[in-house]
């Protein structure tokens, strides 16, 4: 598990070996997570894809669907540092980033020392992130984009792998603060956690109401995850696939040449270039998982929904008409021509 991984792939044999190792590692982590989680394969794949692509994930779902347990299981399976932040309305940025406290020194004196916040970790669970004020929510911006935290005159470089897994409840909207677009755009994926299937309920009840709790072992380490991230980034993308990703991203922008009528009519704000970046990064991970050495259109289409759904702002007309993000993305996928 702790074997050194050479991130630089110079020939085809090394590429095949790295791809095989990536798939093996991915399968090991997923097996451990699935020991705790029943069902929700798409959500698990999405979270792990984002983890290996180097992005953050926003999990949205009603309470009781296992969002927090998924993140807990993943942190245990990866074997990295894990911290959880329960966002509340009275939380302040210092509660996340850290602050300077007065501590006693061994010589009997006292000194000011910076106490790191829970953001300084590898896997951060921001539970119910929309319950904090925008001031507190914005404390995550720097950490999510620049992978660093600035408190006072001190800047801490966060260690890799760093991944923020945030959850929010879409139902209880009283006393919540919807995430601003700047923060939503920093999430690689937005995954919607739905209800389990009927056949999964029995397994869920057996595992959670029995006397023996499932034990999750670490399937990898943080270093190996970082190495796999480098492997993912080396997956080439043909020009025609880049063009396709750009067209998909531009199709979310109302008034563009590739935007379907539903986008022009119901979308107020389209995706930023981060959308295309998310498509390609996630597509690379999916290409390796699908046994290919280059990104194809299928990979892009596979990750288009979680990568683009939260980057569009539906206007009032669309909201009144009941237009959802999923409908728009599906319309875009049907409209934009594949190379």
């Amino acid at each position: 598990m702790t074997s050194a991984v050479n991130p630089q792939v110079t020939d085809a044999d090394q590429a095949r070996e790295a791809a095989a190792r990536f798939c093996l590692l991915y399968a090991g982590i997923k097996d451990q997570v699935c020991a705790m989680m029943v069902g929700q394969d798409e959500v698990i794949d999405g979270v792990m894809t984002a983890l290996f692509a180097g992005g953050h994930v926003l999990l949205e779902g009603v309470p009781g669907l296992g969002k927090t347990m998924l993140v807990n299981s993943l942190s245990q399976a990866v074997g990295t540092r894990f911290s959880r932040i329960q966002f509340t309305p009275d939380m302040m940025p210092a509660d996340i980033q850290g602050t300077t406290v007065l501590v006693d020194t061994p010589g009997g004196g006292q000194e000011l020392r910076f106490q790191e916040g829970p953001i300084v970790s590898n896997l951060v669970l921001a539970d119910e992130i929309n319950r904090a004020t925008p001031k507190t929510q914005s404390a995550l911006l720097e950490a999510m984009q620049e992978r660093q935290v600035t408190a006072g005159r001190r800047t801490l470089q966060l260690s890799e792998p760093f991944c923020v897994l945030a959850t929010q409840n879409p139902v209880e909207q009283e006393g919540t603060y919807p995430l601003p677009e700047a923060q939503l755009d920093r999430f690689l994926f937005k995954l919607v956690v739905g209800y389990p299937k009927e056949e999964d309920y029995a397994a869920i009840l057996d595992r959670t109401t029995g006397s023996e709790a499932p034990v999750i072992e670490a399937a990898t380490s943080g270093d190996e995850v970082v190495a796999m991230r480098d492997v993912v980034r080396q997956v080439p993308v043909p020009d025609l696939i880049k063009t396709y990703a750009i067209h998909l991203m531009m199709a979310t922008q109302p008034g563009s040449n590739y935007a379907p009528a539903v986008v022009t009519e119901y979308v107020a704000l389209g995706s930023s270039p981060r959308g295309a970046q998310a498509l390609l990064l996630a597509g690379k991970a999916r290409a390796l998982l699908n046994g290919r050495f280059a990104v194809s259109c299928d990979d892009i289409r596979e990750v288009a929904l979680p990568a683009l759904r939260h980057r569009m702002l539906i206007n009032f007309h669309g909201q009144s008409e009941g237009i959802t993000d999923e409908q728009i993305v599906h319309e875009i996928l049907q409209t934009v021509e594949q190379p």
Binding site: V9, T10, D11, A12, D13, Q14, A15, R16, A19, Q234, V235, P236, P238, D239, L240, R292, F293, A294
Partner: peptide, 15 residues
């Protein structure tokens, strides 16, 4: 596309 690309990487050759 990769055949004609200069500086072929390992993943390109594998592709």
């Amino acid at each position: 596309e990769f055949i004609a690309a200069p500086g072929r990487s390992g993943f390109m050759a594998a592709a």
